[in-house]
Deep mutational scan, measured.
Amino acid sequence: HEITLHINGRRVKLRFRDEKAAEILKEAAKKGLDEEELKKLAEELWR
């Protein structure tokens, strides 16, 4: 699955395995994680 989040006016595509991962990524984006941090988090969730 993929999700596209808008971060600092940019579109960031993240891959994720399940809905739980999608929710975690959305929450992290709301908390203000930047693009690099979100990509790292997405990679961690993928494993």
Rank of each mutant, 00 (worst) to 15 (best):
E27A: 12
L5R: 01
K26G: 06
E44N: 09
K31H: 14
A29V: 10
R10M: 09
R10S: 09
E23D: 11
A28V: 04
K39T: 14
I24A: 10
R11L: 15
E36M: 13
E2Q: 06
E37N: 12
K40C: 07
E23F: 06
K26F: 11
K30T: 13
N8V: 03
F16L: 06
L25A: 03
A28M: 10
R15N: 05
R47D: 14
R17H: 10
L41R: 02
E23G: 11
K13I: 14
E43K: 06
L5Y: 01
G32S: 05
N8M: 04
L14K: 00
A22D: 02
L33V: 13
E37A: 15
L33S: 09
H6K: 07
R47C: 10
R11I: 15
K39V: 15
R15E: 05
E36A: 10
E2H: 12
K39N: 09
I24L: 12
K13W: 01
K13T: 15
L14W: 01
L25K: 00
H1P: 05
L5W: 00
A21P: 02
H6A: 08
E2S: 08
L38G: 00
E2P: 02
E23W: 06
L33P: 02
A42M: 05
E23N: 13
A42S: 07
R17D: 04
I24G: 03
A28S: 08
G32L: 07
N8P: 02
E27V: 09
H1C: 09
I7T: 04
I3C: 04
A21F: 05
I24F: 07
L5F: 07
E37W: 09
R11Q: 15
D18Y: 05
A22Q: 08
L25M: 05
H6W: 07
E43M: 06
K30P: 01
R15F: 08
L38F: 03
K26N: 07
I3R: 02
H6R: 08
K31F: 10
L5Q: 00
K13R: 12
E2F: 14
E2N: 06
I24V: 11
L14C: 03
L38Y: 02
K26T: 12
D18A: 03
A28T: 03
N8G: 08
A21W: 03
I7G: 02
L41V: 05
L38Q: 01
K20I: 10
D34T: 14
R10G: 07
K20M: 13
T4E: 15
R17S: 08
K26L: 14
R47V: 15
K31Y: 11
A29C: 09
R47M: 14
H6E: 14
R17C: 06
R11N: 15
L45G: 01
A29E: 04
E44L: 13
E35A: 11
I3W: 01
E36Y: 13
K40S: 12
I24N: 04
R47T: 14
W46T: 03
I7C: 04
L33A: 13
R17I: 13
K20Y: 12
K30E: 12
L45S: 03
L45K: 01
K26H: 10
A28K: 06
K30Y: 08
K40I: 13
E35F: 11
K20Q: 12
A28P: 00
E44Y: 12
E23Y: 06
K40V: 09
R15G: 02
T4F: 07
K40Y: 10
L41C: 03
R15M: 08
D18P: 01
R10H: 13
K30L: 13
D18I: 03
L5M: 07
G32T: 04
E19Q: 13
H6D: 14
E43N: 07
K26R: 14
K31Q: 14
L25D: 00
A29W: 13
A21E: 06
R47P: 05
K13L: 05
E23P: 02
D18S: 09
K26Y: 12
L38H: 00
V12M: 03
K30D: 12
E36D: 13
V12K: 01
L33C: 06
A28D: 01
R10W: 02
E37Q: 13
L14D: 00
N8D: 10
L45P: 00
H1G: 15
G9P: 00
R11G: 14
R11D: 15
H6V: 15
D18E: 07
K31V: 11
A28F: 07
E36S: 12
H1F: 15
K40Q: 14
A22C: 13
A21M: 07
V12C: 03
T4M: 09
R47Q: 15
R10V: 13
L25V: 07
I24P: 01
W46L: 05
E43T: 05
R47L: 15
A29M: 07
E23M: 12
L38V: 09
H1N: 13
N8Y: 02
A21N: 08
F16S: 09
I3V: 08
E37H: 13
R47N: 15
R15C: 08
L45I: 05
E44P: 00
T4S: 08
A28Y: 08
A28W: 09
A42F: 04
A21Y: 05
